[in-house]
Nucleic acid binder design. Structure first.
Lengths: 163, 163
DNA sequence: GGCCAAAAGTTGCAATTGCAATTATTGCAT
DNA sequence: ATGCAATAATTGCAATTGCAACTTTTGGCC
């Protein structure tokens, strides 16, 4: 049985999907045209540059991103070819590898960051306004609450931070 | 220069991405495991079943979905093979085609709808609560406002309604 | 009537993605 | 010390996606 509130929730859900699509399209297009970089690459650089020593185990990195491990492997392949990242063995553990951001990677990140931040300002912050930002944070907190991690039964859990 | 509000906005933006990922993963997984249907197919069936006479020009349908035209063509190919949809010529216009939902398509939709609605209830509505739903609607309205359609310069504009 | 730009769909192609299987390594239990 | 399950990362493969090019049809314009 479909109550009025259910119907409302469906509409909001659809708006949620539309909004996400609109915003990510905008940001991706801008970043790609201005800096020739995808949001995916940006996410890797963001996480690595914030990590101590600019390095993260692949597993840790994957946990912060929204990708499966296989996806990360291939993304790092191309980023390594572009010399934004390099892989290094982990001293104590022969299985693991570090992804390390290179100097060029940091430069690329610093050049890209203003574009992304400007996008967030214009498309996100400016439209929301202080009240909207509060509203959104409130709602997202509720949604993430109690499920901050991946749903059970999914391949790899973790705290996802970027596309 | 990065202000405090900018930094906050970045965090909220990241939460927004994470939330979207978490919710769509949940819904997709549930729908697929319980009904063997993707959210993409569901979107097509939802739109067609709501349309007068259960039919929509491909262009109209594409405009309501979040896909490019080519994506829709191939999705309809597979749905047509599953006999959930069929294509028909448009009387007055030899270029156009209708996508028409079949009886089996309506049945599949009716079976799938409860799963989707339950997902929206449990993962979305229940967590948000009345206040959270209000907050979210408020925020999304602000974000969509003034950009209800596709960004300029993108391939196909339109009112997107589903993945 | 004939021409040509625009519109509707489809298809070729390349890139991205995820799942499952594979390889290499580790650490525990015997 | 040996065997074996668990962990880390990669690779094979198939599905999905978007862009650009292409085909067909339309409709205006001369």
């Amino acid at each position: 049985m479909t109550t009025t509130r259910d119907a409302q929730a469906l509409l909001v859900w659809i708006d949620f999907l539309r909004t996400h699509q609109m915003l990510t399209d905008l940001m991706e297009t801008e970043l790609r045209s201005e800096r020739g970089m995808s949001l995916g690459w940006y996410g890797v650089l963001l996480n690595l540059s914030a990590a101590p020593d600019g390095r993260l185990r692949l597993q840790e990195l994957a946990a912060r991103l929204i990708h499966s491990r296989s996806g990360l492997t291939r993304r790092l392949d191309s980023m390594e070819k572009a010399e934004l990242v390099r892989r290094e063995p982990v001293p104590g553990d022969g299985r693991g590898r570090y992804a390390v951001i290179t100097r060029q990677g940091r430069n690329a990140f610093m050049r890209a960051a203003p574009t992304v931040m400007r996008g967030i300002e214009t498309h996100f912050l400016a439209r929301l306004g202080p009240d909207g930002l509060r509203s959104l944070r409130d709602a997202l907190d509720r949604l993430l609450d109690g499920n901050g991690d991946a749903p059970p039964g999914k391949p790899d859990g973790g705290t996802r931070i970027w596309t």
